[in-house]
């Protein structure tokens, strides 16, 4: 039950993009087509889960014993970046099809703030390993959900008559704001 609640909380109530405003860059950048949004969402689920696992282990078995808590951010970035690179190399050999699907997005999300944000949040909230993994997966699913919904709206928007001054980024930002307000409606259920 605890994990179900954690899942709902991370996907809807504390949606990483629309409530915590992390990972806005890909949210606006790769949300013009549903296909690419799904690809990006899957890549984030994958990378977020793996990187949270590794940073969690590193924090508890390397940084904390050595008293190097202040190096959290810099060492996380180092680990996540090399981890994603590693995954990319292996994926290219083992599963070319998956590499083709995720290929462009993998390096893109290496330095995404929602990846780093979740890795740090997990430590701050003092989760155990299983809780951390569940939290990471559900946060990533929340990210993917927000991205796909937003891409769907933008696909529709592309075909409507928009005043000249509102075309492109302005209308996208307004839509994102309205979507964030809609997600505010979930607050308080968990």
């Amino acid at each position: 039950m605890e994990y179900v609640l954690m899942f709902i909380a991370a996907v809807f109530v504390n949606n990483v993009v629309l409530t915590q405003f992390l990972g806005i860059c890909p949210f606006l950048g790769v949300s013009k087509k549903i296909d690419t949004a799904i690809g990006m969402g899957l890549a984030v689920v994958f990378v977020l889960t793996v990187s949270t696992l590794f940073t969690f282990l590193m924090q508890n078995y390397l940084l904390n014993p050595l008293g190097l808590g202040f190096m959290q951010t810099v060492s996380y970035i180092l680990v996540i970046a090399s981890l994603v690179q590693l995954v990319e190399i292996i994926l290219k050999k083992v599963s070319p099809a998956l590499y083709q699907a995720l290929g462009v997005f993998l390096p893109l999300i290496t330095t995404n703030c929602c990846i780093l944000g979740v890795a740090i949040l997990v430590i701050q909230k003092e989760f155990n390993l299983l809780q951390s993994i569940v939290y990471a997966i559900s946060t990533a699913i929340g990210f993917a959900l927000a991205l796909v919904i937003f891409a769907g709206i933008r696909e529709q928007l592309a075909m409507t008559r928009i005043p000249d001054g509102m075309k492109g980024t302005p209308i996208a930002l307004i839509t994102a704001g309205l979507l964030a307000m809609a997600f505010m409606g979930f607050s308080g259920i968990v």
Partner: peptide, 22 residues
């Protein structure tokens, strides 16, 4: 420790890129 993490990551990447070379 930071240098160690970096060096370990680099070594690991090098090894895998050799092993999984396409």
């Amino acid at each position: 420790s930071l240098g160690g993490i970096g060096a370990a990551g680099a070594a690991l990447l090098y090894a895998t890129s050799k092993k999984f070379e396409v």
